[in-house]
Design a binder for these strands. Structure first.
Lengths: 362, 362
DNA sequence: TTCAGCACTCACTAGAGTGGAGTGCCAACA
DNA sequence: TGTTGGCACTCCACTCTAGTGAGTGCTGAA
């Protein structure tokens, strides 16, 4: 429970956004109670909140002022108040304390990362489930981008007489693969030759910078294999939605709203990987860690808030965590969970995926 | 619209499940209309259905008989009838015609597979989206199982001084990877040595049969690298949920039900990969292609029906397609879509992932 | 500025009344 | 025997009507 620290906001009459101590306390009480109950909050419920030691009539006049200033709104006359997006914004910026996880959640996180193993992808997937469990939100985890990671290995593995699998390993531990078809039979020796030539042209370069054509040798059929593989290799680099997205706890959206139509529109957004990844990046780029209601500009998510947190591996921001919930989500909890899990995830990733600076000299 | 083929069911008084021609036609009309309208169907709506040329009074007595026999039920007295699970079952088994895709859907499918490219995983993912679009169901696509695929390539790619990435390519084109940590610095030459020794012990074997320990050489530090990598290699084979699941169109579940609680419980199931994969396999093992209501035994999906279709690559059943919708889903459409897409998917997979029998001799 | 008191608003609920879609039953008929 | 029109009945869905209560804004006094 965030302490109502009057001194923080009391003496700043210059800024239009600031509220005097009691109004802030009233707003705090309304937001906190509404987050818990999802019911409009009346003046009577606020009187015994910390920092508010006045009668309900005075609270009412404060609430009326808060409504005039756009922090609160009424579903209808003679109902209690509910926070507006602006009200949530003030709450998040000035009222919500840092937030902590309770001990069982902390234990759950510790336990998770102590036993984390397996491929990066599956770890990210399970991390999204963990976050969803902790926060009762829908969790989105965007994996590291591989745009700039140099190629560390290129391999051609024959699968059929005329089909091989191109397997590329990047310096950050990502593996990309794609099958390559040849018009003619190609034996293993020729595949090795071709792979070596490919490696010579691409090792150390990021995928996007792989040259379009290789130098030719005398051997025309090997050349054909190399150029076919090179085409595929370049196509891997130009892949549109390169960043992987893992979504966990989408069922939590069905608990958050009681209008099935809202649930549907949110799920529709979540199905569009590119939209979600772009959205998270946009929010991060504007420097926010929370986007409330329409702040992010995605219409169907107007009833939602999004908490974002970059995941840093050895100081480099490389992935993103997002938590999606209703605007009346538990912000302190979500921020705390994102911070803690993001931190641990970054540490864990740095153990298995060294950054280029720490990597071996190619 | 399936033709009401009286001759199919008319003269089989021996079987308790069979219905005379008109009753079948009535049931057909009720199910068809209910699938379209989601409203209880009254006798008046049935009289002008094909195969029913009797008055509403007669239809009523037929409907009463169908209710006695468990094919129909009433939400309350003086309401129309809605089908029971048994009614849907009869509809699927005896009444629903083979079903076809309309021309725009066929075009969509053709277009999709003509332009399908990229990794298998991303193709399966997009296939689930296609199926969801076509059927307005939630689509589940289970990728090929790699249990028996022999290892075709093992590689160790150094990422850091003490970290390497183990990359395994299986004969069916699957790639598995996992990072391996060593206690000491390992240079590239030693990694190559170790990879060669690993390959000698594992090439041609499925992951689950990789030996627990390798023969030792004199060089103790290479031995250490090999045994560390071998441990990781074996762990890849014993991974629990090995089959990948791709779910598309989960937002369609929110359109299918108007109780948000139903949506929530279905989404919760969909989040559990292992449950879904097992469920699909179970249904397939019982020889069904449609599981209606409680037939599959998963409580939270009692309001749902599931259409399953194996995906065969060169005659071998290797993957599964599932379509999840409300029990009043459009069965003919779902079956047709699953059949057509499953067929095309199998063909497409066989082009890029030869089966062992067609593979090159190791 | 705060507060008690008061009139007012309006969603929510319960109960009564009504219309209509639907049923089951029955007697008559082919 | 199966089919049919007629008829009484049922009961949901809807509307309308208070009545209730949580909440408001306003006002005059401390």
């Amino acid at each position: 429970m965030p302490a109502t620290d009057d001194s923080r906001t009391e003496h700043s009459p210059g800024s239009g956004l600031d509220l005097d101590g009691r109004k802030a306390a009233v707003l705090n009480a309304v937001v906190s109670e509404y987050i818990g109950s999802a019911q409009p909050v009346g003046s009577q419920h606020v009187v015994d909140a910390p920092g508010v030691s006045v009668s309900s009539a005075t609270v009412r006049s404060d609430m009326a002022a808060l409504e005039r200033d756009g922090y609160l709104t009424q579903p209808h006359t003679s109902a209690g108040r509910i926070p507006t997006d602006k009200g949530y914004r003030f709450f998040v910026d000035h009222l919500a304390g840092p937030g902590t996880l309770d001990s069982s959640s902390r234990h759950q996180v510790r336990n998770f990362f102590d036993h984390a193993h397996g491929e990066i992808e599956s770890m990210l997937e399970r991390t999204s489930g963990l976050l969803a469990d902790l926060t009762e939100c829908t969790a989105m985890v965007v994996g590291p981008s591989h745009d700039s990671a140099p190629i560390r290995s290129v391999q051609l593995v024959g699968l059929g007489p005329r089909v091989a699998l191109l397997v590329v390993v990047l310096a950050d531990g990502a593996v990309q693969k794609q099958s390559v078809e040849f018009g003619v039979d190609v034996d293993d020796a020729r595949l090795s030759d071709a792979a070596a030539r490919l490696a010579a042209h691409s090792l150390g370069l990021p995928l996007a910078r792989v040259p379009a054509r290789a130098s030719t040798t005398g051997d025309r059929s090997t050349d054909a294999v190399v150029s076919a593989a090179l085409r595929v290799l370049r196509s891997l680099g130009s892949l549109e939605g390169g960043d992987q997205l893992f979504v966990g706890g989408s069922s939590n959206m069905a608990s958050a709203f009681d209008a099935v139509e809202t649930v549907r529109s949110v799920l529709t957004i979540l199905e569009q990987q590119l939209v979600v990844v772009t959205l998270l990046r946009d929010i991060l780029d504007t420097g926010l860690s929370v986007a409330i209601g329409t702040e992010h500009g995605v219409e169907p998510l107007a009833a939602c808030a999004i908490v974002v947190m970059p995941v840093s591996v050895d100081g480099v921001e490389t992935g993103t965590i997002g938590l999606l919930g209703p605007t009346r989500m538990n912000y302190p909890l979500a921020l705390a969970a994102a911070r803690v899990v993001g931190g641990r995830l970054g540490e864990r990733l740095s153990e298995v995926v060294p950054t280029p600076s720490r990597g071996r000299s190619a």
